[in-house]
Simulated scan of single mutants.
Amino acid sequence: MILYGLKTCDICRKALKLLGNADFVDVRGAGVPEEVLRAAHAQFGAALLNTRSTTWRGLSESDRAGDPLALLAAHPALMKRPLIEADGELYLGWGPEVRAALGLG
């Protein structure tokens, strides 16, 4: 299991604590592998972008209108977090439905 997030993100730290066996990838330093990012975008679409982040608010309108995958590659902190890869499945966020799907009730 791999958890993609930010080491400074409280929700990512909570998720990592409950998912003790997960490998953590700090997207700000290591990024998200392109194939994972493409699969996540295909599955989650616009929900993959965190449009409430300070990074998003700092972008120009023309940047915001650009290719979402290019935006995420250039600004990994724009990704909604955490993105969890487990047994070939992708999960986005840390809501009750994600916790239940991962067997954490």
Rank of each mutant, 00 (worst) to 15 (best):
G88T: 02
G5P: 10
L16D: 01
H41K: 09
E97R: 05
A74I: 01
L37F: 07
F44H: 05
P33R: 12
L59D: 05
E34T: 05
V27G: 00
G29I: 11
R13N: 13
K7C: 07
K14V: 04
G66A: 15
A86Y: 14
A47V: 01
M1D: 03
G5N: 14
L78R: 11
L49D: 07
G88N: 10
T54R: 15
G66W: 04
W94Q: 11
L3C: 11
L104F: 08
W56Q: 13
E61V: 02
F24P: 01
H41S: 03
L71D: 00
R57N: 14
D63I: 00
V36F: 07
F44E: 04
R28I: 03
A40I: 13
A73W: 00
G88R: 13
G103E: 09
H75N: 09
P68L: 09
G93F: 03
L92H: 08
R81W: 00
P76T: 10
R99V: 04
R13M: 09
R38T: 12
L19N: 04
D67F: 04
G20S: 10
E34Q: 11
I84T: 06
I84W: 02
T55S: 11
Y4P: 04
L71Y: 01
V27R: 04
L59G: 11
N50W: 06
R99A: 12
L48P: 06
M79K: 06
G88F: 03
R13S: 09
L37Y: 08
G58C: 03
L78I: 04
E61N: 08
L71E: 06
A22E: 10
E97C: 01
T51A: 05
T8G: 10
M79L: 12
N50Y: 06
Y4D: 04
H75R: 14
A77V: 02
D67I: 00
A46G: 09
L78F: 03
H75D: 02
A46T: 12
W94K: 06
A74V: 03
D10C: 02
A70H: 10
G20D: 13
P82R: 07
